[in-house]
Design a binder for these strands. Structure first.
Lengths: 101, 101
DNA sequence: GCAAAGGTAAACCATATGGTTCACCGTCAG
DNA sequence: CTGACGGTGAACCATATGGTTTACCTTTGC
């Protein structure tokens, strides 16, 4: 069910959040600060990323800490690799077929 | 602008189309046949994939042939690799920091 | 204990998305 | 030539998405 993750990464705002989070965990407020968006909007995006299994959040006191899951992109990476492998072997097969003729 | 591709792959129908196309080019009709969807619906998805630079289509006679672009997933693969690299170096840094203390 | 800060829930809105049907057009086969 | 086939454009619809504002709750600092 990797399409869930693709969908989550398909929004530019959420992609930016992931890239930001790759540099270390931050609070939700800090995530919203550099944007022109309201906090609730940003938090909705964080929720989506959370449900896609890309980030985890913990509430410490009154601040919610968001961090990238260490296994966040493995599903995406493996799917992509599989697909590329499949595709390249098909190209190889086509190549040998062309050589034979 | 890799979010365009992520968004395109974020829909289960389109993801299935890509996987199907990885096994070789097909006509639009053949793409729609195994599904419960109407042809126009499938063709809309193909358009989206085309605009995301993932597939190309050519019209031969009255049939439209759809094929996966050979460079379809490079952007996705490179972004993912970069991100994982960034993330793992950060983890390494954290590890050495913990060792020092 | 009070005020400010950080977050959250709810209501709401505009637009995008994913799908349908129907009418129609070009192409291929008999 | 004509009919069936594959695809396309348009109109339309329901729901999802991305955003807002407002009110409110909890935590923190003085």
């Amino acid at each position: 069910m990797v399409h869930r993750q693709f969908a989550a990464l398909g929004d530019p705002t959420r992609l930016a959040i992931v890239e930001r989070l790759a540099c270390g965990p931050t609070s939700a407020g800090d995530l919203a600060a550099p944007t022109t968006m309201s906090l609730p909007a940003v938090l909705k995006h964080v929720r989506v990323l959370e449900e896609a299994g890309l980030v985890t959040t913990v509430k410490r006191g009154r601040v919610r800490e968001c961090r990238l899951r260490d296994d966040a992109l493995v599903a995406v990476a493996t799917w992509t690799a599989q697909q590329q492998a499949l595709w390249s072997t098909r190209l190889d097969a086509l190549g040998t077929l062309l050589e034979e003729t």
